[in-house]
């Protein structure tokens, strides 16, 4: 079970894995911004969104993340898709592009496309996060986070403490998943069926999992705090690093590619560029 967990770090030696986590984070944020930029019309929106999805799929392949992992993470999105669609259809709008009518109620293409746009954005975000979390050790993540936050130290912002909290939280995700697994096994031996059964049985089985999980999580955190204090941990102390990250050509390439894409998308957005018009096509 724990091996198929979403977004778990997977040790490979790919280009993306070997990028400096700070550069990687920067590139990821650049790419993420492009997802939210408005294009001149629907056709351009979906062209850019589609190209971007293809690009991220390539990143997934490059980082050895299985496409099936990505598809699995999309399963939960179905519910969201239907929900979005209903919301967008119910929002009143004025448009002449009617898809179909139910009685006097008009369903517009714009509503459907709006929902689709959000879905594409979500998919891109999920895929990007997946690439990042599968290729970056939790510790590197929090290092990057701390590095970006460090200027705020001068105005009294507890950036080190936050980074420490973040890295501990990340560190304990697999441990807690292991706990989940262990407790589920123990309760299953006592006749709990986590898969089948009605609502009442479901609630009971979830309680039998959640309560011990919280108990052990609290116990762990207390033990950890004690252990850290015993070894003289002082959040205000100055610290050195064991792993020193170096900026390499990979980071340069990664940042350049991301920045180039960001530049292109911004340019097309502000100039209301329409590729289809260039070819003389009339599109919405």
């Amino acid at each position: 079970m724990s091996s198929t967990v979403l977004g778990r770090y997977v040790p490979y030696q790919s280009f993306i894995h070997r990028m400096d986590s700070r550069a990687k984070l920067f590139a990821m944020i650049c790419l993420m911004v492009t997802v939210f930029l408005k294009q001149v019309n629907w056709a351009m929106t979906f062209l850019v969104g589609g190209l971007f999805l293809v690009f991220i799929m390539m990143l997934l392949l490059l980082s050895h993340t299985k496409i099936t992992t990505f598809l699995k993470s999309l399963r939960t999105l179905w519910f969201m898709a239907i929900f979005l669609l209903i919301i967008y259809i119910l929002i009143p709008r004025t448009s002449d592009w009617i898809a179909f009518s139910i009685g006097t109620f008009n369903v517009y293409w714009d509503s459907i496309l709006d929902a689709a746009k959000i879905l594409v954005r979500l998919m891109s975000m999920i895929a990007l996060m997946l690439v990042f979390s599968a290729s970056t050790k939790p510790l590197e993540m929090s290092d990057a986070f701390e590095w970006y936050m460090s200027p705020l130290k001068y105005i009294g912002f507890p950036s080190h403490e936050l980074a420490m909290i973040l890295s501990i939280a990340l560190r304990f995700i697999p441990t807690i998943l292991e706990d989940v697994h262990r407790i589920m096994n123990a309760q299953a031996s006592r006749g709990v069926d986590f898969k089948h059964g009605g609502v009442k049985a479901k609630v009971r089985s979830v309680i039998s999992l959640i309560v011990p999980l919280f108990v052990s999580a609290f116990m762990r955190s207390e033990e950890l705090a004690d252990a850290m204090e015993c070894r003289g941990y002082d959040p205000k102390g100055k610290r050195t690093k064991y792993r020193i990250a170096h900026f390499s050509w990979r980071d340069l390439v990664g940042i350049l590619v991301a920045a180039a894409w960001l530049g292109l998308v911004i340019a097309s957005s502000v100039t209301h560029f329409d590729l289809f018009a260039v070819f003389g096509l009339e599109v919405r």
């Binding site: 299953a188 309560v211 011990p212």
Partner: peptide
């Protein structure tokens, strides 16, 4: 699982009911 009872390594982590009595009667009830 009714026929084969398994007591785990560190089974104390499976306790969850508010009383000892309830926790012990959990398996037979299931």
């Amino acid at each position: 699982r009714k026929k084969v009872g398994l007591v785990f390594q560190f089974p104390e982590y499976q306790l969850f009911q508010e009383t000892v009595e309830k926790d012990v009667s959990f398996a037979p009830k299931n």
